[in-house]
Computed example of a mutant assay.
Amino acid sequence: MNLNGISKKLQRAIIQTGLIVKVGTTQFYSNEQKRLINVYILSTPVYQPNRKGEWKDRDMDILRTSSQIDIVNCLNDIWKAVK
């Protein structure tokens, strides 16, 4: 099974416990390596006040990495903690 499939299964299992965990991606171009780099972001929504004192939902980053195996390992650690 590929890492993307494993991370989706872990994410679904964690969400069923009531903890919302989002996995997002973004890309940037590296002039040094002359290629696009994928960045994976593991986040959870939190309720925080903004500058005006109003409370809003925001995403708090848990992990930001270019390694998908780090995302799978972090999701596995979260799963072990919540089950």
Rank of each mutant, 00 (worst) to 15 (best):
residue 24 G to S: 15
residue 28 F to T: 04
residue 63 L to E: 06
residue 45 P to D: 10
residue 45 P to E: 03
residue 19 L to Y: 01
residue 33 Q to D: 05
residue 11 Q to E: 13
residue 47 Y to P: 05
residue 64 R to I: 14
residue 9 K to G: 12
residue 48 Q to T: 14
residue 3 L to P: 06
residue 31 N to T: 01
residue 28 F to W: 10
residue 76 N to V: 00
residue 50 N to F: 02
residue 19 L to H: 03
residue 23 V to Q: 03
residue 11 Q to P: 07
residue 65 T to H: 04
residue 4 N to Q: 14
residue 9 K to I: 11
residue 12 R to K: 11
residue 7 S to F: 00
residue 30 S to R: 05
residue 63 L to K: 13
residue 46 V to T: 11
residue 4 N to H: 12
residue 57 D to H: 12
residue 15 I to G: 12
residue 65 T to P: 02
residue 26 T to C: 11
residue 38 N to S: 07
residue 21 V to N: 03
residue 74 C to Y: 02
residue 69 I to K: 14
residue 40 Y to C: 09
residue 55 W to Y: 13
residue 44 T to W: 03
residue 25 T to D: 11
residue 4 N to G: 11
residue 10 L to K: 13
residue 73 N to M: 05
residue 14 I to G: 03
residue 22 K to D: 09
residue 25 T to R: 14
residue 36 L to T: 00
residue 44 T to P: 00
residue 38 N to A: 00
residue 55 W to F: 10
residue 10 L to A: 04
residue 24 G to T: 07
residue 27 Q to N: 13
residue 44 T to V: 13
residue 11 Q to I: 02
residue 30 S to W: 10
residue 9 K to M: 05
residue 18 G to D: 01
residue 43 S to R: 05
residue 15 I to Q: 11
residue 41 I to D: 02
residue 26 T to F: 05
residue 26 T to G: 08
residue 75 L to G: 08
residue 22 K to P: 01
residue 26 T to L: 04
residue 7 S to Q: 08
residue 47 Y to W: 09
residue 6 I to Q: 10
residue 17 T to Y: 08
residue 59 D to H: 14
residue 25 T to Y: 08
residue 8 K to V: 09
residue 76 N to I: 00
residue 31 N to P: 05
residue 46 V to K: 11
residue 70 D to I: 12
residue 52 K to E: 12
residue 49 P to V: 07
residue 41 I to E: 03
residue 17 T to E: 05
residue 32 E to N: 02
residue 64 R to H: 03
residue 45 P to N: 08
residue 11 Q to H: 09
residue 3 L to H: 08
residue 62 I to P: 07
residue 42 L to W: 00
residue 51 R to P: 00
residue 12 R to Q: 14
residue 30 S to H: 08
residue 69 I to D: 10
residue 57 D to Q: 12
residue 2 N to I: 10
residue 15 I to K: 15
residue 8 K to M: 07
residue 41 I to R: 05
residue 14 I to K: 06
residue 33 Q to C: 01
residue 65 T to C: 01
residue 54 E to D: 15
residue 44 T to A: 10
residue 52 K to A: 11
residue 43 S to Y: 01
residue 49 P to W: 02
residue 35 R to I: 04
residue 33 Q to Y: 14
residue 22 K to H: 02
residue 66 S to G: 10
